[in-house]
Simulated scan of single mutants.
Amino acid sequence: MSKRSRTNLRKRNVSLKKKPTLDWQERRRRQISDALSKKDISQLRRLATSGHGLINDGLRRLCWPLLLHFEHYELHYKVNLQEVHNDERQVLLDVERSFVYFPKGLNHVQRKQKQSELNDVIVGVLRRHPKLSYYQGFHDICSCLLLVLGKKDAIKAGENIAITDAMLDSLDPILKQLNLLNTLIRLEDLEIANFLEESNILPYFCLSWVITWCSHDIHDYSKVIRLFDFFIASDPLITIYLSAMVIMNRRNELLTLERDNATIHTFLSKFPQHIDINELIQETIQLYRKHPPRKLQKASNEELDEKSCVNLYEKHWLELKADYSVVDEILSLPPSVRKPDKKLKKSNPFNKLNNKQTILTSVTVIAFILITSNWLMKNLPERNLLSFH
């Protein structure tokens, strides 16, 4: 190659290097904008569950209404919104303990204004569905909805997110979801599963993660809101899969602990603050694909109710057939008539408990619920902050 040719080649290489490249944020913004313009919900789900999610709250304000199917929803479809819900007193107590850690920089007046709006959001949801049972922690979720969407749209989003197993008139449905965690871990990591079983650890240490979408346990708003992208665009059982991945990612630390129930429970109940959220999400998706909800229920001795939001996800949500009259009908069902899905037959559960273990589990669950309620009442002031998918 001649000297002149080499010089020209170097110039072309320099020119190529200097050519401006589209950074990942701009590429992602264009992808989101394109999906929004086409109302391509499948693509929005892919974007919300991959990479850095929906990037910023401005884009979330546009995307979440589509993902939650409320962009054309009219708020005042209920005739009487003046009737007070039974749980409004507890709502007010929780609201007064909100917005402590974020958003940052709120003065006293601004914080009181946000709390007033938050109360309106939660009460707005409950009065539209009087049969919903409020739980401490739902206000954490609604806090994030309010910060992203504003009050009016937060009520719409909160309504769709509220219609889950967590807000029925019994804790049993959500406890059944938590019990699936045991089977999931055993399917993936037998050593951890045996360690937890031998230490008499029940899965209720991650209850807060599941019912608040981690918004009560993670201090970093950017991580919390990234997880909201993921949860809003995913199966309602996805929080169980994420909880399993958090535990298995901590296996080295966990297995070095002394087999003391209190020590292990305390360790597990603290969500790791420095975890890579994007990496955690991708690992969770892989776990979900490997053991989808119906397969997981078949492998477990905990089959969820046929009317569970988990078992209705594909039929009613992905097909855009969510119907509030159906929702009200489901909420009206008493626990006594709720039955496991008939299509799911039990098959050699890993963790059948003998009578002694069953009694121990029942007593422990009751004690845990009482202790957790007391703990939340005392500690919620120090922390701020699902979905009928």
Results as ranks from 00 to 15, higher is better:
363 V>W: 02
384 N>W: 02
337 V>W: 06
333 L>T: 09
323 D>S: 12
292 P>I: 01
327 V>N: 06
380 L>G: 07
293 P>N: 02
335 P>E: 10
277 I>A: 04
306 E>Y: 13
308 S>W: 00
283 E>V: 09
294 R>L: 06
271 F>H: 09
328 D>Q: 13
344 L>Y: 04
279 E>W: 05
387 S>T: 10
308 S>M: 04
314 E>I: 13
312 L>N: 14
305 D>K: 09
277 I>G: 00
293 P>A: 04
350 F>Y: 14
328 D>H: 13
261 N>C: 07
339 K>F: 06
375 W>L: 02
358 T>W: 07
331 L>P: 07
303 E>K: 12
291 H>I: 12
288 Y>Q: 04
267 F>E: 00
321 K>E: 11
357 Q>M: 11
372 T>A: 08
372 T>Q: 08
372 T>Y: 10
348 N>Y: 10
318 L>R: 15
332 S>R: 15
269 S>W: 02
371 I>N: 08
277 I>V: 11
326 V>M: 14
324 Y>E: 09
361 T>V: 06
263 T>N: 08
354 N>Q: 08
262 A>V: 14
266 T>V: 11
376 L>G: 01
278 N>Y: 02
300 S>L: 03
319 E>G: 07
276 D>H: 07
306 E>W: 06
337 V>F: 12
376 L>T: 02
355 N>W: 13
275 I>R: 06
358 T>G: 12
327 V>C: 08
333 L>Y: 14
273 Q>I: 09
351 N>W: 11
354 N>I: 10
298 K>G: 03
367 A>Y: 00
329 E>L: 08
337 V>G: 10
297 Q>K: 10
278 N>F: 00
387 S>W: 08
370 L>C: 04
323 D>C: 11
364 T>W: 04
271 F>M: 14
266 T>P: 02
298 K>Y: 05
387 S>H: 13
380 L>W: 04
329 E>I: 07
375 W>D: 00
314 E>P: 01
272 P>N: 03
301 N>W: 02
341 D>E: 12
382 E>L: 07
310 V>W: 01
365 V>W: 01
290 K>S: 08
317 W>R: 09
369 I>L: 05
315 K>F: 05
305 D>R: 05
337 V>E: 11
388 F>A: 00
285 I>C: 06
291 H>R: 03
378 K>N: 04
345 K>I: 03
315 K>N: 15
384 N>G: 11
281 I>K: 03
265 H>C: 02
291 H>A: 11
338 R>L: 10
288 Y>M: 05
342 K>R: 15
302 E>I: 13
355 N>Y: 12
309 C>K: 01
276 D>G: 05
320 L>S: 13
305 D>A: 06
271 F>C: 14
291 H>N: 13
257 L>G: 09
352 K>W: 12
316 H>Y: 05
334 P>L: 03
295 K>E: 06
302 E>K: 15
341 D>W: 03
